[in-house]
Design a protein around this nucleic acid. Structure first.
Lengths: 217, 217
DNA sequence: ACGCTACTGAACCCATGGGTTCATCCTAAG
DNA sequence: CTTAGGATGAACCCATGGGTTCAGTAGCGT
């Protein structure tokens, strides 16, 4: 996690090491396990091994702190998702489409099950009322952009006759729906950790259904 | 929304009017617009036109109040969902399957878009950390039970050759996923009201995909 | 050596809100 | 009419936590 520089005994890292990053890391951890209102700045400061006024000197207030952590998490998740989708670019044209999709599905599910994704979904949903604009940011990066990237791949596959002619946006939307819908349900909104085998089963079932709906033949 | 219906006959209406129901109605309204932590008991009391101590005399504390309102909302939604699914029992055998499904899909989407469903999803998600057991109750009634009911109908249709042979549970899971996944995305977690035309389009698209994946032919 | 800047810790201010107390009021029952 | 018990409202207690102040301290560049 954070860069916990410093040597042992009585001393804490007094240097100007990047306290800021330590604070943001700690903030995400604390927000993730307590939620926005329940997380107190004091606890975040402790977790970051930093004094409370230091937190306020780097980030103006609790809200700013929250927005930065959410932003950062959304960025990372977007990158992860896009990277997974982009694998299709090289694999799909040559390999069996089903195999490529199954691989994609499993990797996406693993990301969605991860701690970061869980915490982000949870925090975003919980603060819908207080910070409605956050939803735009988060959904844009964790849902719309990856979906658009997938739509690009699907369009190519459709053109190449590997999928039936269709609206790629629609197909991508349904692909994600078939994957994440069951996940939400089976993980009980993230409160239950789904065994790897079940995850694999869900991925395969989703790909099966998707290919029956959108595959060629 | 809340009819203050005092149920004059047979009820155990303590006091003059049924304050208790008024309190629960008000609690749902306030929780729905403020969230759990932001909702203060004072405001609930005002909205119910009741004094704060009266609230505490009927419901022990804020948590009890919350659990009761969530329970009640989940019950109502379950009933609505089950009623819609049960329509298949009479319609599907005779009519065109596609027409019956399209009707089902639209009615389900309308329920999911409703104020009650929106508020319930939001509140449940937001309190995942504080009241993890609530998820069980809510998901059981608003997701699992309706899905099981749909699976029953799909099993019959499959047996009758109107759907391809399949695992009805799986098919039902995918049906709901195709419906609610896109809804979550397009309504921005319920912060944007989706126009009726778009709703209809989503329902039709979901049914199209579902029938390609699970229809007979 | 000097001063600038970041950091610390602890105390402090203050608003919010859960939950309670109490004297009083009002209505339904007898 | 009397009475009992739910209902009232206003004051009250107290814990929590956001945000600030301040005096002191440690490192770094010059």
């Amino acid at each position: 996690m954070g860069s916990v520089a410093s040597s042992g005994a009585g001393g804490v890292s007094r240097g100007r090491v990047d306290k800021r990053q330590a604070i943001l890391d700690a903030a995400f951890a604390v927000f993730a396990r307590r939620g926005y209102e329940q997380a107190c700045v004091q606890e975040i400061a402790q977790e970051a091994r930093v004094a409370k006024p230091t937190v306020y000197s780097h980030l103006n207030d609790k809200e700013t702190l929250f927005r930065h952590t959410i932003d950062a998490a959304a960025d990372i998740l977007m990158a992860e998702n896009l990277a997974v989708v982009e694998r299709l670019r090289d694999r799909a044209p040559d390999d069996d489409v089903r195999v490529a999709f199954a691989d994609l599905a499993q990797r996406l599910l693993r990301i969605c099950c991860g701690e970061r994704a869980r915490a982000l979904r949870w925090l975003t949903y919980a603060q819908v009322a207080r910070f409605p604009d956050l939803i735009e940011t988060v959904q844009e990066r964790t849902a719309h952009r990856p979906r658009a990237a997938l739509a690009d791949r699907l369009a190519r596959l459709s053109l190449a006759g590997r999928l039936r002619p269709c609206d790629p946006e629609q197909a991508a939307e349904h692909f994600f729906a078939l994957l994440t819908g069951p996940l939400e349900s089976r993980s009980r909104l993230g409160t239950r950790s789904v065994p790897a085998a079940e995850l694999r089963g869900m991925a395969d079932a989703a790909v099966d259904a998707f290919l029956r709906a959108y595959g060629s033949d």
